[in-house]
Design a protein around this nucleic acid. Structure first.
Lengths: 221, 221
DNA sequence: TAGTCTATCCTTAGCAC
DNA sequence: AGTGCTAAGGATAGACT
C-alpha cells in the first residue's frame, strides 16, 4: 500500500555505484531494459546494426543484437560481413588486442568529455569556448604519437604551469600551498544478480565474475 | 533565425526508419551518444561491464566498452557456446589483461570523482596555485611516463583548463587578450565526443581513412 | 558535422507486490 | 527477478548556427 510518504516521483541520484544492493538490482534491471530498448529504436529508426553485451552484477550475460549479436560482433571484429569461422574470428580477436593503447586512449577521451561537461555545468565561459576550438593532437592514439610530439606536450604543460602561476599571482597573493597529488589505496567489492530481456536479446549464465575495483585513488590538492 | 513555425519542442516520431537522410544522420548521432551515455551510467551505477558496437548508416563503426570493448566482447565470446573452445592459456592472459584494464579504469574513475568533488568546492584558484608550487611528477621525461601517468596528466590538464577559465572569469577583461595555447590537430577532421563516464568509446572507419574519436578540447585563456 | 535552444515525450527512482 | 504507479529528471526532434 501507498505509504503516506510524500515524495513519489523520480529523484535524482548520484552517478556513482549504488550501494544498496537491492536498489542496485532493480536499477540494473530497469536500466538494462531501457538500454536495450534505446538500442532497438536506434536500429529501427536508422536501419543500422548494433550489438550490446552486458554482464550483470551477478556475472550473467545479457545481450542485444540487430540483426544478431554474433553476426554484429563478428562484423566488428573482422570488419567484414558474416564470418562464420570460429577460428578465424578468434584470430581477429587476437589481432584486435593490439589496439589496446588506442582503445584506452579513447577511454580517456570519455573522461575528458565528462570533465568538459562538468565544467560547463559549473559555469562555462562561452566566450572562451567559442573563441577557440582546437583539437588536441595528442588525443590521437598514443601509439601514434611521436617522441617529438610527446615532448611538445611536455613543454606545453610546463608553459601552462608557468602561465597559471602567473595569473594566479595577479589575482591574489595569499594562498597557502600544500600537497597537490597524493595517492592512497583502500578497497571495495562486488555485487548481486540479474535477469533476461526481449527482442534479439538473450541471456546466458556464466562463471563467477571477478569484479575487483580494489583501486581507490585520491587526488588531494 | 526562429522561423515563425510555432511548434518548438520535441515531437513524437514514428518508430520506423527515418526517410529524410539528413534527419537520419542527426538522429543517429544523437541517439548513439545517448545510448552510449546510458550504457556508461549503467556501468557506473551498477559496477558492471558492458560493450556496444554500432555500425553507422555509412558503415563506420562506433563502439563503447567498459572497461574495454575488446575485453568485454572477448569475455562474452569466451563463455559463449560457439567459441568456448579457446585454449586455456588464452584465458589466463586474457584474465590478466582484463584485470589490468579494470584496475586502470578504476584509477580513472576515481580521478573523475575527485575532480567532481573539486568542482563543488569551487576553489580552482587555490588548486592551481598549489599545484604550481609543487614538483610535478609528470615533468619527468615524457617518454618515461606510462599510460597511466599520461592519463593522469591528461585529466590534470583538463582540471587546469577549468581552473584557469574560472580564474579568467574573475579577471574578466583579460580573458581573451592572450591565447597562450592552441593545440592544433594534424588533421582537420573533428568529431565531438559524446559525453560519457569513465568508459571507452571509439570510432573507427571500416574502410575510409580514419575518423577517430576526438573532441573539441581547447585551452584558451 | 557538431553544438545550441526549447518544448515536449520518455525514462526511471523509490515503493509496493 | 520482473511489474505497476507517480511524478520528477532526462533525452531529444526540429530548426538554426
Amino acid at each position: 500500500m501507498m505509504n503516506n510518504s510524500s515524495i513519489q516521483g523520480r529523484r535524482k541520484i548520484e552517478m556513482k555505484k549504488i550501494t544498496k544492493k537491492n536498489n542496485l538490482q532493480v536499477t540494473f534491471s530497469k536500466r538494462r531494459s531501457g538500454l536495450f530498448k534505446k538500442a532497438s529504436e536506434l536500429c529501427t529508426l536508422c536501419g543500422v546494426d548494433a550489438a550490446i553485451v552486458v554482464f550483470s552484477p551477478a556475472g550473467k550475460v545479457f545481450s542485444f543484437g540487430h540483426p544478431h549479436v554474433e553476426s554484429t560482433i563478428d562484423r566488428f571484429l573482422s570488419r567484414s560481413p558474416s564470418v562464420h569461422n570460429v577460428n578465424a574470428s578468434y584470430n581477429v580477436v587476437e589481432a584486435h588486442r593490439d589496439a589496446n593503447i588506442r582503445e584506452l586512449n579513447a577511454h580517456l577521451g570519455q573522461l575528458v568529455d565528462i570533465l568538459e561537461i562538468e565544467k560547463r555545468k559549473g559555469q562555462a565561459l562561452d566566450e572562451v569556448r567559442k573563441a577557440g576550438r582546437r583539437q588536441w593532437w595528442w588525443q590521437a592514439p598514443i601509439d601514434e604519437l611521436g617522441l617529438s610530439e610527446l615532448q611538445l606536450l611536455r613543454n606545453a604543460l610546463q608553459e601552462l604551469k608557468r602561465s597559471v602561476e602567473k595569473q594566479a599571482d595577479l589575482l591574489q597573493a595569499a594562498v597557502e600551498s600544500s600537497n597537490c597529488w597524493q595517492f592512497l589505496a583502500p578497497n571495495g567489492v562486488g555485487t548481486s544478480g540479474s535477469g533476461s530481456e526481449g527482442n534479439e536479446m538473450h541471456t546466458s549464465s556464466g562463471i563467477t565474475p571477478l569484479q575487483k575495483f580494489d583501486q581507490n585513488l585520491y587526488l588531494v590538492f
